[in-house]
Design a protein around this nucleic acid. Structure first.
Lengths: 173, 173
DNA sequence: GATAGACTAGTCAAGATCGACTAGAATGAT
DNA sequence: ATCATTCTAGTCGATCTTGACTAGTCTATC
């Protein structure tokens, strides 16, 4: 229920970020969590792991850097080979689409274990959650229009419509 | 980029299946792969692992069974405690919603690394993939209408619309 | 009646993942 | 000045996941 696709999206992500400017690991993972965390799930420890592996195969290089009295840190940069991998991955991943898993839909399989009334209550509660997500999104959309935000809005709207139909169906029974 | 939610959906899935009838591990995982594989991703080895853990905590029981000259196999059944966990999980998972990760959208971050023309071509190729998914779905929908299939259709349609807008935007440039 | 291929029923080692932890530096509050 | 917090920068162990493998059975074909 975990693995959705792995055509190298994580590597693409890290390489793409390093392509903009070199960064040390903490900077990278902090950026991932604070700016991209709502879209992609790549934890700090995993990022470090990937950076290590990519360094081993020569896609990125690193150097130690000492600044002020802070502890030394390793600054990562993309290598020419990494750039070529990036270009390749980008063209390989972008045109593919595979339907992702929606583990949260497991309970839909077992709706008949619930009474009609309780089923409706729980579905409505879920609809409320989706609406909350959409609401939170509205704030972002005003400030920075972005394809990924638009994507999210459309997916959430689809969820909402679907739940509406489900609830209707449960109601008329 | 892997973990999307874990409120116990996998356990809920296995318990829910065992609730319908007892099954041995192979039967379960085979059913998962052939009938639910398009919706949920739970590999055989993972299912066995989970069954083992659920047995250890008493949510399921197992007995050995010998049939004909086949090798013995372990038949799993849900226990009363498992049933109560199932009921609890169902009510806990159903009302929640968390936006899933779409790792396939990573390349969207880096569209500006592509020329306008190539970008369009690749986006159109992806749109083709989504259309293929929708087409494949049509076949199923005729036979067995199911909320999960409807969900999938709506999500795919949202993807399609979104890609349409992206492509338009790239075109008019 | 021999060989090939698919089906049954699982196991296991290798690798991936992440929560929790460390430890020093800077900042803010009292 | 002192204490508590937060920030920086990363590491590590425990757990989770799965591709590949084993090993026996049945089925069909030539």
């Amino acid at each position: 229920m975990k693995k959705i696709t792995d055509a190298g999206e994580r590597e693409l992500l890290l390489l793409g970020l390093l392509r903009r400017r070199e960064m040390h690991g903490y900077q990278l993972s902090d950026f991932l969590e604070t700016h991209l965390g709502m879209f992609f799930d790549l934890k700090k420890a995993t990022a470090y792991n990937l950076l290590g592996k990519m360094e081993k195969v020569g896609w990125v290089t690193s150097r130690e850097e000492k600044e002020g009295r802070r502890p030394v840190r390793r600054v990562f940069a993309i290598s020419p080979e990494g750039e070529s991998i990036f270009q390749d991955l980008l063209r390989r991943v972008l045109p593919r689409y595979e339907f992702p898993a929606f583990p949260a839909n497991v309970p839909i399989l077992f709706l008949d274990a619930l009474s009609s009334g309780e089923k409706m209550d729980l579905l409505k509660e879920r609809r409320g959650e989706v609406e909350k997500c959409l609401g939170a999104l509205g704030l972002h959309l005003d400030h920075v229009p972005h394809p990924l935000l638009d994507h999210r809005r459309r997916i959430l709207q689809a969820e909402l419509d679907w739940l509406g139909v489900l609830i209707e169906g449960a109601e008329k029974k």
